[in-house]
């Protein structure tokens, strides 16, 4: 039981981060505004969670432009995918 608990990633202990990873893992990339729509959080809240996931190396971003407006696209890294899948597996095992 203790081993499984160790497999849970602290980085995903937050609902918003869980949501970010879930969205990114099924799409090539998702832009900031769409993430905001899906997760229903404020700009600042989303930005800080994105930053912490990015610092852990789980996601990456590409700054782009939609005409004149800046448009940042986020995607999951290979490490992020591995970590997230590990986390999900741990949860599933905990639930039996």
């Amino acid at each position: 039981m203790k081993d499984i608990l160790k497999e849970l990633d602290k980085a995903f202990e937050n609902k918003v981060r869980l949501g970010i990873m879930s969205a990114l893992i099924v799409n090539k990339y998702v832009d900031f505004n769409r993430l905001k729509e899906i997760l229903e959080v404020t700009d600042g809240n989303l930005a800080s969670h994105l930053k912490s996931l990015e610092r852990k190396g789980y996601i990456t971003f590409k700054k782009d432009f939609l005409g004149r407006k800046p448009n940042t696209k986020y995607s999951v890294t290979v490490e992020g995918q591995v970590a997230f899948r590990k986390h999900i597996k741990a949860i599933e095992r905990l639930l039996g």
Partner: peptide, 22 residues
């Protein structure tokens, strides 16, 4: 341990995955 939380986590994950994929 908090099984309910984990169950709801999994449900959220599934829900968001479904909602975002086009």
């Amino acid at each position: 341990m908090n099984n309910e939380k984990y169950l709801s986590d999994l449900q959220d994950i599934k829900k968001i995955m479904n909602r975002t994929s086009r």
